[in-house]
Amino acid sequence: MNEQLTKLTGEALEKIAKAQDLDALNGVRVEYLGKKGLITAVMKGMKDVAPEDRPAFGQVVNEARQQVEEALEKAKQALSEKAEEERLKAEVIDVTLPAKKANIGHGHPCQIALDEVERIFIGMGYEVVEGPEIEWQEYNFTKLNIPEGHPARDEQDTFYINDEILLRSQTSPVQARVMEQGKLPIRMIAPGRVFRSDSIDATHSPSFYQIEGLVVDRHITMTDLKGTLDEFAKELFGPDTKTRFRPHHFPFTEPSAEVDVSCFKCGGKGCRFCKDEGWIEILGCGMVHPHVLDMCGIDSNEYTGFAFGVGLERIALLKYEIDDMRLLYENDQRFLNQF
């Protein structure tokens, strides 16, 4: 009996191993374990076994049955895994087909540059404030130490509405407005549009953006100005950027300076961006003129300050290698899409 059982089990396992699909497996199950199955038939022969041998017999048959069932289960799983695998194989896609984009819009290069500058100065504790674009001549000039008749009034070709009101030619009037409020210390930047009567060409625009900076406190020094702008330049143009301070003149600062940064394209060796000079001029700055502090109600014996003004377009043009300023104000989608 045992031999027969071993033989049947062996046959069943062999057939299971050969089964190619679930139907074939089912056939094996029916043939051996079904109601009329061969192993089931052996079980049925229990009644012919002597009662004392029945437990041992039952155990042997059950073991055989269990062995076949386990093999069936295992084979079934293997087959369904294989089927799944094949289904997935059939679902292969060409991953190089075009993406479905949300078509998010693009920032303007000037705004991107401005956001960057704001980020840097906010990190250094500066508040971002704004002032009017149509301004009193008094704020644009007089309070900045540019009295009536001063040649600087001609240097900045100003658009006038009337004798008293003009389109601001610089963001510096915001300095005067903030100082007049009298809340000290001051650490602020004021970005915004300014206007000058320059005809439109590759390097000029009658309207452009400036960012004004102002710090007023006790013991503010020229070295603080230098350190602040060093940090700014390194953040904006990269950690290896060097700055060069050159004496200059602005009526509302004394001493005044223009600041060059080492060319961030060539690192200072000289290239077409820096016109072979290795340096690129980016801003004007200086210590707030004591007369300006006094005019704005701040005691120049107690307080000092520094101020700077950056041309945003210039930074955007240089940073993004844009060769014509007109592109900034045309708003060609193909241009904007690149930012």
Partner: peptide
């Protein structure tokens, strides 16, 4: 301040140190 600029022009704008303002902290914000 005018004299200070004269001094600095010939002492050298590029020779002075870089420092950062100290004093009361301010909050940077939009």
């Amino acid at each position: 301040a005018d004299l200070a600029e004269e001094v600095l022009r010939f002492h050298g704008y590029d020779t002075i140190e870089s420092t950062l303002p100290v004093g009361e902290a301010t909050t940077g914000k939009l």
